[in-house]
Design a protein around this nucleic acid. Sequence first.
DNA 1: GTGAAAGCGCTAACAT
DNA 2: ATGTTAGCGCTTTCAC
Lengths: 367, 367
Amino acid sequence: MAVTAKDVALLAGTSKSAVSAAISGKSGGTVRMSHATRRRIIEAARQLGYAPNPLAQSLSTGRTGVLGLVLPYADAFVDRNPFCSRIMNGVLDEAIRQRFNMMLFTGDGAGACGAETLDPRVDGLIVVVPSVDNPLVRMSSERFSPCVVVAGWPELPNIPTINADDFHGGWLATEHLIKLGHRKIAMFYNQGEPEGFGPRAEGYKSCLLEHGICCDKDLLIGAGCDWRPGFERMNEILDRPRRQLPTAVFCVNDLCAEGAMRAIRTRGLKVPDDIAIVGFDDTWFAQVTRPALTSVRMPIHQMGLLAVDLLKKLIAGESVENLNTLLPVSLTIRQSCGAPPEMQTAEDIEFLPFDHTYEEIINESQK
Amino acid sequence: MAVTAKDVALLAGTSKSAVSAAISGKSGGTVRMSHATRRRIIEAARQLGYAPNPLAQSLSTGRTGVLGLVLPYADAFVDRNPFCSRIMNGVLDEAIRQRFNMMLFTGDGAGACGAETLDPRVDGLIVVVPSVDNPLVRMSSERFSPCVVVAGWPELPNIPTINADDFHGGWLATEHLIKLGHRKIAMFYNQGEPEGFGPRAEGYKSCLLEHGICCDKDLLIGAGCDWRPGFERMNEILDRPRRQLPTAVFCVNDLCAEGAMRAIRTRGLKVPDDIAIVGFDDTWFAQVTRPALTSVRMPIHQMGLLAVDLLKKLIAGESVENLNTLLPVSLTIRQSCGAPPEMQTAEDIEFLPFDHTYEEIINESQK
DNA sequence: GTGAAAGCGCTAACAT
DNA sequence: ATGTTAGCGCTTTCAC
């Protein structure tokens, strides 16, 4: 067994409580002690190699210094979805910087937040689950254990959220296609959205409208955030008579876009010549598809950082002024829409890992 | 405050210990109870929404059900180094599958494993730190808290390790260059290696020797596992008189290789025409450099999986027959060495995230 | 200024 | 078969 406070007390000739006070450095409470005893205790602790047992500490104080990160499914912690990876990166990055430990949870299935979710082993939760419903929110109120939702809109109020401007992203993507002369533009939206088509699709519709293009219902297609639905929906569309084919598809994310491109390839057609494709997320993934994807970039890493900052404040009991953060997006233009080279974003190898220092990201977020 | 075992006991009209026994399902020990009481307790617990406090549970039992993952520096948890990401992915993947929770630690600086390392909040540790020295091992013995070292060789015995066959990897890379006609082959090894040049460099030397090529000491160059040392060393080399330039460089990993390629580019030279480059790791990163890297592939993800399996056994008190696992490597041939197209590995988009299901990986590891 | 004692919520050995 | 009790290691309030 490890050395305990009792051992230290014995050696220093004091009581456990003195040890606790000395080690934690809190001269608060009724416990004040002479410099001499404090020193003696510290020395004894050092000598014995004593460190407080965080488990016992937490049980006693109700604080753990651990943040929980909830991703939608186990695979999400893995390379499986570069968006999730990147969110996780941001969160971990900042958590480590802020000297929080991290614990990982998975919200098995859509929006499920099991009993483990209200785990006293964490001081708060960062939730990155597509549809965030009641159980989560109940938790947040029942226990005084705050949570922050990233990339999602919980149904109940008073839950802080951090999102990118999906609506504007949808708008940008659509506008780009229109500029390139497309009129029959399909959209693959995420069928899982709690209500309606989701903000990305709303941006798409709004942009079409603004440009006087009729929003054909047959072109607004329920897909999902993985490559498979993209693949399947595109296959179905390609069965339509040639006249009814869209000339471009805006996909709800990059994975979905790759699925669509794969279906197109399989049929012997070409992107962008036959059908143009736009994605959403613009992680490294968009660089390695062939052709490279034109995609809406969101400040994913920064979203993770902000989530931790926000959660930290909530844990500290500070009130937050801006409950719903909305971060700006932009369009990265590559080859999947046939944009002329001068429009294309330079294929920046700089995007690769080694230039993502913390300072840069902070600066980036401040300007 | 949350509902406790006491509340349940009160409602069910039994004692706390009965509740504990009923909930944990352990009819072992001296505690056996009638079906009736058990049912009553279960029902009461359900009614109250009771769940045991894992913190208290752990404090009492000394088990937490949490694995700790130690990466060398905070950034390593982040995209910063695709190798680390991928290891982490493997570990998380399997940990989740085995219903372990994960906690993340960073061994700030080389080989440092602070007090937090012997954290009772975890049942065991998976350590992915380049130079694993004594503090870690001391921990492992002092507490009965096992650890597994991944991609490293601790100095003390009896610590289970999981490694790829780095020596053979170095051999493969060098042989490839020799086959392509290179004779002046430099190697950038990792200066941080505890002793000597590390197994990758040994493989390199051994291969040169076997092919009757003198191992020029000026070509065995201390670099590191990041792009910066690769960049700087290559810059220095390019200052040498043209006669002394190597025609190829084998880099200790892909990041280092990219640094070297960048230096070459900066000087207006071309890879592979002027200098050929081989990397090591072969993560997705090797696909997105220009030119794409020829690189030694290791079963990184699988190393993570195995680490968890091994640790699980150790925690369960099982003894492990094979203390030092060595996994096979292979060479992925792309464009950075000027290999003829027919030698090149098909640029497999299949490598991308969506085909990494658990089953595949398991199958892959079995054949 | 310092130490004793209660309790955080649970488990497991011990009486009943 | 069931209930009682004593910790796990720490913090913190309360007497001294």
